[in-house]
Design a protein around this nucleic acid. Sequence first.
DNA 1: AAAGAAGCCAACCGCCCATCC
DNA 2: GGGATGGGCGGTTGGCTTCTT
Length: 390
Amino acid sequence: MVGSQRCENAELKKGPWTPEEDQKLLAYIEEHGHGSWRALPGKAGLQRCGKSCRLRWTNYLRPDIKRGKFSLQEEQTIIQLHALLGNRWSAIARHLPKRTDNEIKNYWNTHLKKRLDKMGIDPVTHKPKSNVFGLSSGQEKDVATLSHVAQWESARLEAEARLVRKASPLLLSNPPPQSQPCSSINHIPNKAAVSRPQCLDVLKAWQGVVLGMFTLATGGSSLESPTSTLSFTENIPLPVPKDSGIFLGNSKSGITELAPNIHGSCKLGGMTKEPDASTSQWECIDEELNNQMPVQSVVTMEKLDNDSMEMQGMASSRELNEDAAIGNVMEGVLADISVPNFESQLNTFIDGSFGDNVEDNRNYWNSLLNFTDGSPSPSRIFSTYANLAL
DNA sequence: AAAGAAGCCAACCGCCCATCC
DNA sequence: GGGATGGGCGGTTGGCTTCTT
């Protein structure tokens, strides 16, 4: 790289910005925009290099920056996203409106990393550390609980990946002629030819996709490192009883609008949960998963992502940003399901959610992040637990 | 009260990638 | 195609502030 980009010119000022310099930079950008950062210092009368001006603007002077203490929810989000994304601060910052990557990075390094460490959690892998350093009994309990939550969530993710892999190809095959028609998915073409088991597979696929999406969106409370390895076992019980419907919509998230016709009631222990109470819907899913999931398994969202993509012949999620990855997985699965109505609605949803408008995208992510509030999802459980433990 | 330690965070560094010419 | 440039990114530094002894 050339010297000028490194700000090596001896005549250029370094170090803390003075209020006068800030004012000059602000005034210039407000009037002219920043344009070329390299040319800006000269035009604005600043003895700084362009890069220094750019950093000062993006990290401090920009009017849409929120400064000050991080809220509890922001802390939770950072921890969860860090578990999923690692030190990809800019990616994490995209999910925290008005916070800069630099601010989040500093906050992590000075606060959150130490807190996790005190809790006995490795801040790099987000896994509980071994007790070789002598944890107190209380810390051991904390770690054990976190470990359980992590295992539980991992198992859930594993099942979701498996469901997506299994269900979609099945939907492309010809249904057995003697199958019972499905009554709960009335918008699928040739519905008379679709068997009830296949209907369930649609539901399961959707459950996997939708839950997977939320898991990604919320950081998923996955305590696994993005670089963790996967160990699938093929004999995992399906999380949904064959005679049970699963409601996939949620009034908070707007998914009801996306999938208005595939919801049904959720049966649990002889009690039917109606789909009008969003919390109950997710209680249904979470309880079912909690009751039936094995806890000894390791999976990561990245792997889920990759498996889903592999199924669709897509590029690895490593090669895509996480937003696009989610969109592609959903698009791919929907293409397989071959439900035009779903596909068009999903496309609308994705178009609106992953567009060029940064603010809209932020709002979308916020709506997803808010999704777990009041819900006993693993994310919520983890957050609540983390609050108590921190 | 003072000195050293620890915490904190804005700013910098250097690498990388995309785009332009 | 390849060099120049702009800009993004994660890691690190240095100086100021706060805490502890």
